[in-house]
């Protein structure tokens, strides 16, 4: 798959009466990793949820594979090939690793080889050793990998990946970054939300910097890294 996968123009969202997004525009190209960078509370998570219809949102344009997904039920968006790995992972803690994967299974329309538990266990060797373990007996990092694997079972063309490096052991951060790059190598595009910008810098092709619900920068990751003034202004580093 090539070309523009996700095309967002002037996205706004609120939680009840609290407005969180004030008109964001950004794009995700097939096979690329775009990182939404910003501090805690900047609106990154809300952006991902708004795209999926999990929070009420408005937009001038919200296209996935050239189809408008504004107001479309979440499950239909998922079936179009847009996967979601939430920040709090939300694996089914009463279900075993294998059952979690089964819950995510969905044959995709793409020409790529479908993901199977066996392939995923190769990608995440930690999970292979705990197939029968329940979600509530797994560490944060293991839960994170399971959450990603579960989403891959739906054979998505793109994944919204929320804070994959948060709250996991440092030794797993490395493995996580490698897994993200491996997914990209398999042709899965990723919209990544990260406040750990070192992680984002290590994996992403493009950067979108969000501050207080507004877009401050959209461009190549290298441009963002090279722009010290912008980095200082938006991240304070």
């Amino acid at each position: 798959m090539t070309g523009l996968l996700l095309d967002v123009e002037n996205l706004k969202a609120s939680y009840g009466r609290a407005q969180v997004l004030f008109g964001l525009s950004f794009r995700l190209q097939a096979g690329e990793i775009t990182a939404l960078i910003g501090r805690n509370g900047a609106g990154k998570t809300t952006t991902l949820k708004a795209v999926l219809g999990l929070v009420p949102a408005t937009a001038d344009r919200l296209l996935f594979k050239d189809r408008s997904i504004l107001g479309v039920p979440t499950y239909k968006i998922a079936r179009l090939g847009l996967g979601y790995v939430p920040e709090d992972r939300r694996i089914f803690t009463d279900l075993t690793v294998e059952e979690n994967l089964e819950a995510g299974r969905r044959s995709g329309g793409s020409e790529r080889a479908p993901w199977t538990p066996e392939r995923l266990f190769r990608l995440f060797p930690n999970l292979a050793a705990m197939k029968g373990r329940r979600g509530n007996q797994m560490s944060g990092g293991e839960q994170q990998m399971l959450s990603i694997a579960r989403t891959l079972m739906g054979n998505p063309d793109a994944i919204l990946l929320d804070e994959p490096s948060e709250g996991i052991a440092p030794v797993l951060v490395q493995a996580m970054a490698e897994a993200v790059l491996a997914m990209k190598a398999e042709g899965v595009a990723i919209l990544l939300s990260e406040q750990n910008w070192a992680f984002a810098a290590a994996v992403a092709d493009k950067a979108c910097v969000i501050e207080r619900g507004e877009m401050r920068f959209e461009g190549a990751m290298t441009d963002f890294l090279g722009n010290e003034a912008l980095r200082l202004q938006t991240l304070g580093v």
Partner: peptide, 15 residues
């Protein structure tokens, strides 16, 4: 069982 625990997440998986 998954839906009993988290309906929205099940929907996000395309069910």
């Amino acid at each position: 069982r998954a839906a009993t625990q988290d309906r929205d997440m099940v929907a996000a998986l395309g069910v």
